[in-house]
Simulated assay, not measured.
Amino acid sequence: MLSTRSSRYRVSAAIGSSLVVAGLLVGCTSGTTDPADSGPTNNAENEETGDTIVIGFSGPAADHGWLGAINSAAIAEAAKYPDIDLRVAEGTNDASLQISQVEGFINDNVDAIVLLPTDGAALTDVATKAMEAGIPVINVDREFSSTFAARVTILGDNYGMGVSAGTYICEQVGDNPDAIIAEIAGIDSLPLTQDRSRGFADALDDCGLEVSNRVAADFTVAGGEAVTSQLLSAAPQIDAIWNHDDDQGLGVLAAIDSAGRDEFIMVGGAGSKNAMELIQSGDSVLEATVIYPSTQAADGIRLARLVAQDKALSDLVEVEVPNRIVLNAPVVDADNVEKYLPTAFTS
């Protein structure tokens, strides 16, 4: 049964996401400002070509389907605007190299930087340096450790992913107080993994359940398969599994198939095309997945353009781009998979 707290969360999250999405689109009507005002303007002309701006973009290596989608979506979004000159640094998982890339953007005096840091804490100082140089930084996905390091932070809702997954599982097996719930996390040292697990535990607690078995992988296919094999050996009976990541989910499902287990339902995470096609088929233990938007860097490109051109979100009364935007984490199941499948990424 869906609890009151979980219901409120899902409604408020959906409303918040709607506001953000609406803000990124061009409104049919808008507020007006005094022509003498030299500050940002909130108008319906955001899509019109303005002064050309140079945006530096740096992200981790695309060694993961979701990260590949992040990079390609950002590049595709920039290509839509003739007034964006996008400079793309080579993807890397080396924080020191990424720091040098950002320093290069600073030396080139770009107009804005969109940065998905390989490690938020490690990139905080150089991002702060860019901000102090007058270059607005758009922080994507992995947060810096200081609010002074970014003009705008745009995030997926990691805690919300856990809540959504836990709420779905409560709806499916919550009438069994002895249900055995398993969790296959990503990289435990990352704050995003910790947030997902916390949200999951909180949602399960609402219906009187808890995680009985938990393992952590490394967001890879091989890692997912290895830890799931261990999990299945240790737990002869499971009622539901939440796997944090659909890319590592390929390995998770391989281990499940190898073990010949199908007594449980499974919920994925991120929203890959592969996962959605399995959900659509109805021939898998995978019944649902929770969206973690791969549009974050593309949204970051669009926001960087607005900030650099001194514009605002046209559907908000506020005349400046907000400093923090958190995207929604909806559940995709057989009832709504066709809605989300066209924009899903390939693992």
Score class of each variant (00 low, 15 high):
144 F>V: 08
253 L>C: 04
90 E>G: 07
185 A>N: 13
136 P>V: 08
165 A>P: 09
219 F>N: 13
297 A>M: 15
13 A>D: 13
194 Q>M: 10
39 G>M: 05
155 L>V: 13
84 I>Q: 08
213 N>V: 13
21 V>E: 06
29 T>Y: 05
25 L>I: 01
76 A>V: 06
176 N>R: 03
220 T>K: 02
313 L>W: 15
145 S>I: 11
141 D>E: 07
78 A>L: 02
255 A>K: 09
293 P>W: 11
30 S>V: 12
2 L>E: 12
69 A>Q: 13
225 E>Y: 00
117 P>A: 13
179 A>T: 00
249 G>Y: 01
343 T>Q: 08
88 V>I: 14
110 V>G: 03
198 R>N: 06
46 N>D: 15
155 L>E: 14
208 G>H: 07
143 E>H: 10
74 A>E: 08
312 A>Q: 12
156 G>L: 04
217 A>D: 02
34 D>S: 12
344 A>N: 06
195 D>E: 14
53 I>L: 06
325 I>H: 05
288 A>G: 13
229 S>I: 01
57 F>V: 15
81 Y>A: 13
55 I>S: 11
106 I>V: 12
248 Q>M: 08
269 G>N: 04
109 N>C: 01
302 R>E: 13
39 G>T: 12
135 I>C: 00
262 D>C: 00
58 S>Y: 08
222 A>M: 00
18 S>N: 14
11 V>Q: 15
330 P>F: 03
202 D>M: 03
289 T>Q: 12
296 Q>N: 15
328 N>M: 05
104 G>I: 06
299 D>Q: 14
344 A>Q: 08
265 I>G: 00
328 N>P: 04
145 S>D: 15
323 N>F: 09
231 L>C: 11
127 A>G: 12
168 Y>E: 11
162 G>T: 13
102 V>M: 06
175 D>Y: 03
249 G>I: 03
155 L>Y: 03
207 C>D: 05
337 V>C: 05
328 N>D: 14
162 G>H: 07
290 V>D: 10
282 G>M: 04
208 G>Y: 01
321 V>T: 06
333 D>A: 10
55 I>E: 12
249 G>F: 03
99 I>D: 01
219 F>P: 04
150 A>N: 15
112 A>Q: 05
338 E>M: 04
208 G>W: 09
22 A>G: 14
295 T>E: 15
20 V>S: 10
163 V>H: 01
15 I>L: 10
229 S>K: 06
233 S>C: 00
271 G>P: 06
128 T>I: 00
160 G>L: 05
95 A>N: 12
98 Q>N: 14
72 S>C: 01
124 T>P: 10
132 E>P: 00
294 S>R: 15
168 Y>K: 13
123 L>Q: 14
164 S>Y: 07
257 D>W: 05
184 I>C: 08
22 A>E: 11
128 T>V: 01
336 N>V: 09
331 V>C: 05
5 R>W: 06
316 L>W: 07
60 P>H: 03
